[in-house]
Nucleic acid binder design. Structure first.
Lengths: 152, 152
DNA sequence: GAAACTTAGTTAGCATAGCTAACTATATTG
DNA sequence: CAATATAGTTAGCTATGCTAACTAAGTTTC
């Protein structure tokens, strides 16, 4: 399914070929921006779980596991690591004492924002070398990609 | 939200904001597409390393480690797993007997192509619900994203 | 051409992150 | 209130990341 080059315009934008390119492009882009995550001092699973708590707000452990597409025992250990580092706090939910309410601490929010800034800044820097209309094109593409993800 | 195609009116397409959206969009897209990788029967690191050997051709262990952004000991173990599953074959290089030449087997190529097909097909299926010009827009965006990754 | 250095890969040992199975504690239902 | 269902944890396995220390093979230096 991977072609060297070829396929120039004339074609009616074959969805399979575009899916393939989009897939590769997303992989390459994330591989680059991920590079400096080690500076955060926490592992990738912890960083990703923390970002859900920071951006989407407090969650139960099961909800967080579902959001991260892992099983509850896995998330239980990820959260243990985040709590040990004082990046996350937990309370027992009053309405159902089996559930936990997990919440980022101020420190957790700071650590996450710093990591996110490192990621996004390197990407933004290269965007600044692009003409405005290409940046706009990428903005629209990003919206489309998010729509696709929701539909998949 | 009115996204005018020809003339933009409101925002001057802030690179930082666009970088942020693009970053999120890539994460969401890959999270979805990755979901069925478990069917391949091998782990994510092995699958990714195998894809380098299949698409970019034979490589030494050090080169493969660099391509995957991991250290040689890590790649050494990933390759051991791939060899155990008979997905990769290795020879000692004749010109420098310290180096290994790693190469996907026919089985390895099959396993990888099947996994890639599962990933890309689910994305292609949603693209087929989009009008042609949006698909074309995504194709162009994918090229831009790859350019960015090379420049970063 | 032997000693010293460099380079490629492996082994050992540690931490994180994924899973299932089996457990505890709490809530719900018959 | 006994049975069942649900939320999370613990135990134990595999995979994947690292550094430090090793072996083997090439290269440089004298």
């Amino acid at each position: 399914m991977e072609t060297e080059k070829g396929k120039r315009i004339s074609q009616p934008a074959d969805p399979l070929a575009v899916a393939d390119r989009l897939h590769s492009a997303a992989i390459h882009l994330l591989r680059r921006v991920r590079a400096r995550d080690t500076e955060s001092g926490i592992g990738p699973a912890q960083l990703s779980a923390l970002s859900v708590l920071v951006f989407a707000g407090p969650r139960s452990l099961g909800e967080l596991a579902a959001a991260e597409q892992v099983r509850p025992p896995t998330m239980s250990r990820i959260v243990a690591g985040l709590m040990r580092a004082a990046l996350v706090r937990r309370h027992v939910a009053k309405e159902d004492r089996r559930r936990l309410r997990l919440e980022a601490t101020a420190k957790g929010t700071d650590v996450l924002q710093a990591a996110r800034k490192r990621r996004v800044e390197s990407l933004a820097a290269t965007l600044r070398h692009l003409p405005t209309e290409k940046v706009e094109q990428l903005r629209q593409a990003a919206e489309l990609m998010d729509q696709l993800s929701r539909e998949m």
